[in-house]
Amino acid sequence: MYFGQCLCGQVSYRVKSEFVEIECCHCLTCRKAHSSAFAMGVTIDSADFELQTGQELLKEYESSTGKKRVFCGQCGSHLYAYRVAQPESVRLRPACLNIDMSSFKYSHIYTENCLRIHSE
């Protein structure tokens, strides 16, 4: 079981499922949504995600048709995303988990969207 929270600590949650690999998505939408080179995500069953505090602070943004990104309305931390047509799963943003993330495996997707720096 994992526990997580937003940056300001007002929204907290727990995850009952275990996972070993995190995907790092380099698509343009994820980069813009996270203001970063990539966004980390892991898909879990909705039944394994439990909001503990701060539900009233959550805000949603539909970044593409049917895909909602959920974040803390106070500090802006992006906590998870979901697809309206797939209510059985949640795309968790594991960077907000209160754990050491060094033990996970990482894979990178949509890397063709990355800026490449070539050294000579």
Rank of each mutant, 00 (worst) to 15 (best):
N113E: 06
S103V: 03
E62T: 05
D48R: 00
R91I: 10
Q55G: 13
F49C: 14
C24K: 02
Y61K: 07
V84R: 03
C27S: 12
T29R: 12
L115I: 13
Y2D: 10
A33H: 06
H26M: 12
L57I: 11
L97Y: 11
S103M: 07
G4R: 04
S17P: 07
F104H: 07
T43S: 12
Y2E: 08
Y13S: 11
C25T: 05
R14E: 03
L79C: 14
E60P: 13
Q74F: 04
S63F: 06
S12A: 04
R31I: 02
P94E: 13
S77R: 00
C24Y: 03
T29D: 09
C75T: 06
K68F: 08
F71N: 09
Q5R: 01
A33R: 05
C72V: 01
G66V: 01
C96P: 01
S64D: 04
F19Q: 01
R31A: 06
S102Y: 14
E120I: 15
G76R: 03
E120R: 10
S36M: 15
A39C: 03
H34G: 11
E88F: 08
Q5S: 07
K32H: 14
L7C: 11
V20I: 15
I117Y: 02
V20E: 15
E112R: 12
S12H: 01
S89M: 11
H108T: 02
M101N: 12
Y106G: 15
H78A: 06
Q10Y: 09
K68I: 08
N113H: 07
S63D: 13
L57M: 14
N98S: 11
G66R: 02
T43Q: 12
D100L: 04
G4I: 08
L115Y: 03
R91M: 10
N113Q: 03
V20C: 14
H26C: 10
E18Y: 01
F49G: 13
G66N: 10
L92V: 11
R116W: 08
A85E: 06
N113D: 07
K67M: 13
K59I: 05
G76C: 02
A47G: 03
Y13F: 12
P94G: 11
V90C: 11
V84E: 02
K16S: 09
E23M: 04
V15Q: 03
C75K: 02
M101W: 12
V42P: 01
Y2V: 10
C75H: 09
M101K: 12
L7R: 07
A47I: 07
S63A: 14
